[in-house]
Design a protein around this nucleic acid. Structure first.
Lengths: 132, 132
DNA sequence: CTGAATCCTATGCGATACTG
DNA sequence: CAGTATCGCATAGGATTCAG
C-alpha cells in the first residue's frame, strides 16, 4: 500500500479521537518536537553524548536559555538522559535514551526527504513568486 | 548502519553549512511544516482531494484564518494544489501534488513512531512529575 | 462557500545579567 | 561550566467581521 494511502487511513482513525492533544499521539508529538530546536538537538545527540557547551557549539544560533529549556522538555519526555557529574566546575552530559534513539529512524526519513526535495520546493516558490 | 548513526553523519554535514535556513534544507523544512497545522493538513489530504469546508470539518479546531494561511504556504512550497471552480458559490478543491504525496512516507514514519511510543513518553512524564 | 481584513492575546524566543 | 531570572519583542494564531 502506498504511504499516502496508509497515512489517510491513520488520519481517519485518529480524527475519531477528537482534537484533544492529550489523547492524540500525533498532536502530542507535534506540540513537543514541532518547535525550532527539538529535532535539531536530537540530531546533534544522535552520534554520541555531548556536554552542554558542546551542544551550544554544535547548534551555534541557539540561546542558552532555549538550549536548557528544550533539553529539559526532551528529558521529561524520556528522549534524552541528563547526567550530572558532581565536580567543580560541574560537567553535565546529555545523551539519547533508547527511546530517543528509536526516534532517529523517523527523523532520518524527514531529513532525507528535505535534502532530496529541497530543490523542488525552491522551484515551486520561484514559480509562485513569478505568478504573483 | 543504525539510523541514529546515519543521522549523526548528516548532522555533521549540514552543520558545516552554518545555520542559515536558506542554505540548510532541514532548517528550511522545519520552519515550514514544524507548525501546528501543516502536517495535519497534509495527512488530511493524503487520502483524496478535499474542499475547503471538508478540510475545516476534518480538522475541527483549526480557525478559517489558519486553514487558509497554512494551505497557501503549502501551495507556494509546491506540496498542495489549489483548484478553483468558477461557480457561484465557488468550490475550491485542495489536493496533494506529486511532491506532496512523496512527503507521505516520512510523515507516516513520524505518525507510526508517535503511536508506537506514546505510552513510553507518557510514562516518562509521569516519572518526572513524581520526581519533582 | 471561500475567503480577506482587522484586532487582540498568548507565547516562543533572544538578550542580558546574575549564581553555585 | 552550566545553568537561573528577568525583560522585551516578534510572531503565531484565535475571534470577529466583511466581501465576492
Amino acid at each position: 500500500m502506498d504511504a499516502h494511502l496508509a497515512l489517510a487511513a491513520r488520519f481517519e482513525q485518529w480524527a475519531m479521537l477528537g482534537d484533544d492533544p492529550a489523547r492524540c499521539p500525533v498532536r502530542n508529538l507535534l506540540d513537543r518536537i514541532g518547535d525550532r530546536w527539538s529535532m535539531l538537538l536530537l540530531a546533534a545527540l544522535a552520534g554520541s553524548p555531548r556536554r552542554f557547551s558542546a551542544l551550544a557549539r554544535a547548534v551555534p544560533d541557539i540561546s542558552r536559555r532555549m538550549l536548557t529549556q528544550t533539553l529539559r522538555t526532551l528529558e521529561t519526555d524520556g528522549l534524552v538522559h541528563r547526567e550530572v557529574e558532581p565536580s567543580v566546575p560541574p560537567r553535565v552530559t546529555y545523551s539519547l535514551t533508547p527511546l530517543g534513539k528509536s526516534f532517529a529512524g523517523p527523523l532520518l526519513a524527514l531529513v532525507d526527504w528535505a535534502e532530496a526535495h529541497f530543490g523542488e520546493v525552491e522551484a515551486a516558490r520561484a514559480r509562485m513568486a513569478l505568478a504573483s
